[in-house]
Design a protein around this nucleic acid. Structure first.
Lengths: 335, 335
DNA sequence: TTGTAGGCGTTATCAT
DNA sequence: ATGATAACGCCTACAA
């Protein structure tokens, strides 16, 4: 592989000049520029990005830590991020944190050791304090799907509470009063906030959530099926079920079918996230939209603006969810 | 950030010695090792990976090019790859090729310019010749889901033809004779091979595929729904439908339901890939298993073995699919 | 076992 | 506008 040195020799100029035409940061006479370009072309010269990084103290790489690489949710997020960075010539290093404390911390350290210029973190297990400490470090980072007041300027998040509110509010407006709830792991902020929204919507109608109709699931399909069984086992009547995310809703739909119950005739179901497959369940799932791809893109832009100082479009940090009506909810028939 | 130099000063040894304890490739007296370790600890020393890369001519990074970052298929693949590399201390740079020629080539060049030690390529649009030329370059790469005879030693692929054969064979064994087929884009090798397997299975029964019952889709859900409409529009009878992948099968299921047809009573459906949501469709989709996560892992191992010379477990390059019976197929009732 | 010194391919600061 | 030359932080013969 040709080096800058060989290019300079062939072009009959100095190292520095070659560097200048590459980065065009310093004026170079047009004729010499041409000479250099020609030499580069002739040698098939490609700058060594490692050497550039060492000398410029900028690796042009940003680390992404997500909980999982698979699953409809993170895929959409990564797509938004990658597209934005690729266009800017930055590259993306990914690591999975698996929602586990140790793995998430390791992941962050791993990414830091790779000398990323910045980090985009979608972490769940790590504590607020840990992140606040991390902010003292000289590796800048943005937080996706998390709200920490002390770090508000680097948080990009959805109003989960509002989403939870909207889901339940829609059911209430349809006449439902006995509403079961399958939550995600309540130690996860988004699961908790969604549930709080649920409670607020109930309060609007002078109602209170019935603890017997509550189940704490795992955000996965099995959580939905187990949750439904548990709720049915109470023998209590209910006409609607809110699930903390679409995966659990899908599990609940499947379980209901296997038990001979039909949705929405036996009861209505609402999910959360609007992942791509929500449209392909049967019945099609009514859910809350989570614009995760756009949010990933915003995280990328934040980095572009704050770290690479490129003049980019506005960065939106707070996103509002909205309700997507489909076929899994119907009005509560007066009995 | 502390450098190796400061560590050496604090420990009272030379630069070289510090480097040696880090890489432990050269014997170092235990007492000096301790001193160095202590100094590193005290300074919170972290090696600069960029400098390491420049000096050692090894970036410890491998580039991954996939068609898409979202979708159940690639997610599973990335998971297999990331886990394997992370454990080996290598990191993963990803790029999306979107199944488009220009984007795939750009992606490869992008990854090369990032001085990856190796590439894992899941490319569809790029030609065999291009890849054969690429093999002359000094960037080693493995091919996932592609078979090129001249590059056989770096191909990790599934026997798609066999998969296609198994899908149809199962239907034939269940008594089906009029079998419709919704293929993926036929310029994609896997789509073509799956269809060839379909034809071979038919041939076993002295049957020939009916071109009127064939539809070329796009591997996406809409392909399945459009395909089903097109096939129904012919008015020809059929009792089973094979789809080139699960996404299209899912689309066909949804479309069938909307048309008032019930699967598998009106007709049976088989998919391909066994993506995670295949279990959550209604009815649960009978399909062909595609062990993509394991294949991703193998690609990673190939790199570990061939490029990083680490003694790893055997690398399996050829994978065999098998049939997963679920609820979308039933025996053809004799009429 | 340990130290010395040259090199990896750029960038960037001075001069000129 | 251009050229020397010193970083950048580490690795690795070669010597001792």
């Amino acid at each position: 592989m040709a080096t800058i040195y060989e290019v300079s020799k062939l072009a009959g100029v100095s190292l520095a000049t070659v560097s200048r035409v590459m980065n065009n940061n310093t004026p170079v006479r047009e004729s010499t520029r041409k000479k250099v370009l020609a030499a580069m072309e002739q040698l098939g010269y490609r700058p060594n990005s490692i050497a550039q990084s060492l000398a410029s103290n900028c690796s042009n790489s940003v680390g992404i830590l997500v909980s999982e690489l698979h699953g409809p949710f993170y895929g959409a997020m990564l797509t938004g991020i990658e597209a934005e960075f690729r266009a800017a010539g930055k590259h993306v290093i990914i690591a999975a944190g698996h929602s586990e404390l140790a793995t998430e911390q390791e992941g962050i350290e791993f990414l830091q050791s790779r000398s990323c210029d910045a980090l985009i973190l979608h972490v769940e297990a790590v504590s607020d304090d840990y992140l606040i400490k991390l902010a003292q470090t000289d590796t800048p980072f943005v937080l996706l799907n998390r709200q920490i007041p002390a770090l508000a300027d680097r948080c990009i998040s959805l109003n989960n509470e509002l989403g939870g509110y909207l889901a339940t509010q829609h059911l209430l407006a349809q006449g439902h009063r006995d509403i079961a709830y399958i939550a995600g792991p309540m130690w996860k902020t988004d699961a908790k906030e969604r549930y709080q929204g649920h409670q607020r919507a109930l309060a609007d109608y002078q109602l209170v959530a019935n603890p017997a109709l509550f189940f704490e699931g795992d955000f996965r399909e099995t959580g939905g099926s187990k949750g439904l069984s548990a709720i049915l086992a109470t023998g209590l009547p209910f006409t609607a079920l809110v699930c903390g995310n679409d995966e659990m809703a899908s599990g609940a739909l499947t379980a209901a079918r296997e038990l001979g119950l039909s949705v929405p005739d036996s009861f209505s179901v609402v999910g959360f996230d609007n992942v791509n497959f929500a449209y392909y369940t049967y019945p099609k799932l009514s859910t809350i939209d989570y614009p995760i791809s756009a949010m990933g893109q915003m995280a990328a832009r934040w980095v572009l603006r704050e770290v690479y100082r490129s003049a980019t479009v506005e960065v939106q940090q707070l996103f509002e969810p909205h309700f997507i009506p489909r076929d899994s909810v119907k009005a509560c028939s007066p009995t």
